[in-house]
Simulated scan of single mutants.
Amino acid sequence: MFTGLCAAAVTAATTLLVLGQDGTVGGTVTRAADGEERAGEPAEREAEQDGSGQDAPPEPTYEEQLATATPVDPDLSGPGSFTVVPGTEPGAGRGTELTYRVEVEDDLGLDPELFARAVHTTLTDERSWSHEGRYSFERVDEGEADFVMTLASPGTTAEWCAKSGLDTTVDNVSCDSASTERIMINAYRWGEGSPTYGPDLVREYREMLINHEVGHRLGLGHVGCAKDGDLAPVMMQQTKTLSSGSATCRPNAWPHPEG
């Protein structure tokens, strides 16, 4: 009888309370007959938390990332070399088919994946140039392309735009360098937006940049604000102003805002 009780005591697992440094109960540890200690539920829950003991915050959504400004030196001049952002995506339209590649200047400090996603999401939106299937923009990452969407420092943007006779140093803007393969998106403007859109419309400003410069690649020129209070035409130079004469328009990112 006594022998059996001893055996049971040896084989049974023992549950101990684990005390924290302040003397409070912090969880349980189960010590099995083989001497190994196994953590209880409180330790498992702790593994799901960050180092502060709080639940880790959710990752920001694409929309939140695109709406968040990033400081960029307006006088930044990068190395002038570019890296292709990997990835291919089909076009959304049924009409004129165009291919494009996404490249970002090296050492720029901006998120290349976010830029690439923004370009394709914008161009395939029904409010963009794909409206009613008129154009189909296919993203490629190798071989020939009809144009290259390029995110570059203000200095490098100015160099490439000058190849097509354009001066982007005035107001630090972007351009379609039409005599080259590149559409140049100025990293300063991409990062910080413009006073005409303000801090609450960073996402809309970035979408406008993409649509505006691709519109030039499609052969469209600048237009002004036709009527006070209207949405600005996407081909208006909205980075510089929303006014034409006595008419002032509202910010607008899309060639077909009605969708």
Rank of each mutant, 00 (worst) to 15 (best):
residue 116 A to V: 00
residue 154 P to V: 08
residue 61 T to R: 12
residue 137 F to H: 02
residue 152 A to T: 10
residue 131 H to T: 07
residue 103 E to Q: 15
residue 146 D to A: 10
residue 136 S to H: 07
residue 136 S to R: 02
residue 118 A to C: 05
residue 78 G to V: 15
residue 113 E to K: 11
residue 135 Y to P: 00
residue 119 V to F: 01
residue 82 F to C: 01
residue 104 V to G: 01
residue 142 E to I: 01
residue 139 R to W: 04
residue 173 V to E: 13
residue 82 F to D: 00
residue 65 Q to A: 12
residue 64 E to K: 13
residue 134 R to I: 09
residue 108 L to G: 02
residue 167 D to K: 11
residue 127 R to T: 09
residue 163 K to L: 13
residue 120 H to D: 11
residue 149 M to V: 08
residue 126 E to G: 08
residue 166 L to I: 15
residue 136 S to G: 06
residue 92 A to C: 14
residue 91 G to C: 07
residue 125 D to E: 02
residue 71 P to Q: 08
residue 128 S to W: 10
residue 73 D to I: 00
residue 84 V to K: 02
residue 144 E to D: 15
residue 166 L to F: 07
residue 148 V to A: 08
residue 137 F to M: 10
residue 162 A to L: 02
residue 77 S to A: 14
residue 73 D to P: 11
residue 126 E to F: 00
residue 112 P to C: 07
residue 63 E to K: 09
residue 76 L to V: 02
residue 81 S to E: 10
residue 95 G to W: 13
residue 83 T to M: 13
residue 67 A to V: 05
residue 112 P to S: 10
residue 77 S to E: 12
residue 73 D to Y: 10
residue 116 A to W: 01
residue 105 E to N: 12
residue 78 G to S: 07
residue 116 A to R: 12
residue 96 T to H: 14
residue 61 T to A: 14
residue 145 A to Y: 05
residue 89 E to D: 12
residue 90 P to R: 06
residue 125 D to S: 14
residue 86 P to R: 15
residue 154 P to F: 11
residue 66 L to N: 00
residue 133 G to K: 05
residue 66 L to A: 10
residue 116 A to P: 03
residue 62 Y to A: 14
residue 75 D to Q: 12
residue 72 V to M: 09
residue 94 R to V: 08
residue 148 V to N: 11
residue 114 L to F: 02
residue 150 T to K: 02
residue 138 E to S: 13
residue 68 T to W: 03
residue 81 S to I: 06
residue 91 G to H: 09
residue 109 G to Y: 04
residue 120 H to Y: 00
residue 105 E to D: 05
residue 162 A to G: 03
residue 171 D to C: 01
residue 112 P to D: 02
residue 74 P to N: 13
residue 93 G to W: 12
residue 159 E to D: 14
residue 137 F to T: 03
residue 69 A to R: 10
residue 96 T to V: 15
residue 108 L to E: 04
residue 115 F to D: 00
residue 114 L to P: 02
residue 126 E to D: 14
residue 151 L to G: 00
residue 149 M to C: 11
residue 142 E to R: 15
residue 88 T to D: 10
residue 165 G to L: 05
residue 156 T to Q: 13
residue 93 G to C: 11
residue 160 W to G: 06
residue 108 L to K: 01
residue 98 L to F: 14
residue 167 D to H: 07
residue 172 N to L: 15
residue 164 S to W: 14
residue 134 R to S: 09
residue 72 V to S: 03
residue 147 F to A: 10
residue 65 Q to E: 08
residue 93 G to H: 11
residue 170 V to I: 13
residue 92 A to P: 05
residue 136 S to I: 06
residue 169 T to A: 12
residue 71 P to W: 09
residue 112 P to G: 04
residue 153 S to G: 07
residue 113 E to C: 00
residue 164 S to P: 08
residue 101 R to G: 04
residue 124 T to G: 04
residue 142 E to Q: 13
residue 136 S to T: 11
residue 148 V to S: 05
residue 135 Y to K: 01
residue 63 E to F: 07
residue 122 T to G: 00
residue 159 E to R: 15
residue 121 T to S: 04
residue 170 V to N: 03
residue 72 V to R: 08
residue 166 L to V: 15
residue 141 D to V: 04
residue 109 G to V: 04
residue 170 V to C: 01
residue 128 S to Q: 09
residue 75 D to V: 07
residue 125 D to H: 14
residue 125 D to C: 11
residue 121 T to L: 06
residue 91 G to Y: 11
residue 173 V to L: 14
residue 100 Y to F: 15
residue 136 S to P: 03
residue 129 W to Q: 09
residue 157 T to L: 09
residue 165 G to T: 12
residue 67 A to I: 02
residue 128 S to L: 06
